Amino acid sequence: MKTVLCYGDSLTWGYDAAGQGRRHAFEDRWPSVLQAELGGAARVIPEGLNGRTTAFDDHLADCDRNGARTLPTILASHAPLDLIILLLGTNDMKSFICGRAIGARQGMGRLIDIVRGLTYPMAAAAPKVLLVSPPAVRETEDINFSAMFGESIAESRKLAPLYAALAAEVNCDFFDAGTVAETTPLDGIHLDAENTRRIGAALAPKVRDMLEI
C-alpha cells in the first residue's frame, strides 16, 4: 500500500470558519476525502497545523509554526513515504510574517529541498512531491482576519503562477487548488465543508497518476 503525507496549515487541519474555530467533520476534510477516493490503494496521513508557514517564524504563536523547521522530524516519523503533498503559503501572506508571494515561493522551494535532501530511516527513498497552491485570499467583514490578510489579497493571487513556475523548475508536480475551491467570505482565508471536499476529490486523479495506482 502506498503512503501519502499531507503537510499543510489550517486548510489541511480543517478549520471551520462558521464554527468559531472548530474543525470540519473528519469526513469533510480534504485529506479524508482523498483517502476515500483512493480506497485501499493508499494510506493518507493528514498533517495540518493552524498558522503553519512555509519557512517563517511566528513569534506570536504558542507552538512552532515554521514548516521548514518541523518538516524533517515529521518526514522521519512517517517514513517510508511515497508522496508528500505540500499545501502552504496562506499564512506567509500575513504582513507581520512575510506578506509577499515571492517569500512563500522561496519557502516552498526550501521545503522541497528538505524533502529531497533528508537522510531517511532504513535508507528509504525520498517521496515524490506534489506542490499545491491555496485558493486566493478574499475580502471579508471579519475585523481580525481583514486586518491580518486584507493587504495580501493581490499577493495571494500570485501564488499559483509562482508555484507552477517553481514546480517546473525543480521537476515536481503542481496543482492549483484555486481552480476547484474558493475561500469563504466569513473570514477570507478558510474553506467551507464543500470547498475542502472539492480539493480532496480533485487531487485524487493526480495522486493516482503520480503513484501509478
Score class of each variant (00 low, 15 high):
Arg100Phe: 11
Ala160Cys: 10
Asn144His: 14
Ala202Pro: 09
Leu166Val: 08
Phe96Leu: 13
Gln35Lys: 14
Arg197Asp: 11
Glu27Thr: 14
Tyr163Phe: 15
Ala168Asn: 14
Thr90Tyr: 07
Leu81Trp: 04
Arg100Cys: 09
Arg100Val: 11
Pro185Met: 10
Asp173Ala: 14
Gly150Pro: 03
Gln35Met: 05
Cys98Ile: 08
Asp192Phe: 02
Leu87Asn: 07
Ser133Asp: 07
Tyr15Trp: 06
Ala124Gly: 13
Ala147Glu: 12
Arg198Gly: 11
Asp28Val: 10
Pro135Lys: 04
His59Ser: 13
Ala101His: 04
Leu211Lys: 03
Lys94Pro: 07
Leu34Ala: 02
Ser95Tyr: 11
Leu83Trp: 01
Ala201Pro: 09
Glu141Val: 14
Ala42Tyr: 06
Trp13Gln: 13
Ala79Asp: 06
Glu47Thr: 11
Lys158Glu: 12
Val207Asp: 00
Val207Thr: 07
Thr196Pro: 00
Ala204Ile: 09
Thr183Ile: 02
Gly19Leu: 14
Trp13Gly: 10
Tyr15Lys: 02
Leu118Phe: 07
Ser77Glu: 15
Leu49Asp: 09
Gly14Met: 01
Gly21Val: 03
Ala126Glu: 06
Ala25Ile: 09
Phe175Leu: 12
Leu71Glu: 10
Pro161Tyr: 07
Tyr163Cys: 02
Gln35Arg: 14
Gly150Ala: 03
Thr53Leu: 05
Trp13Asp: 09
Asp82Ile: 07
His78Lys: 12
Phe149Ser: 00
Thr119Gly: 06
Gly188Ile: 00
Leu211Ala: 04
Arg29Phe: 00
Ser152Ala: 15
Val180Cys: 15
Asp57Ile: 06
Asp113Glu: 15
Arg116Tyr: 03
Asp187Leu: 03
Gly8Ser: 09
Pro72Gly: 12
Asp9Glu: 04
Leu60Tyr: 09
Gln20Val: 13
Pro46Glu: 04
Ser133Tyr: 04
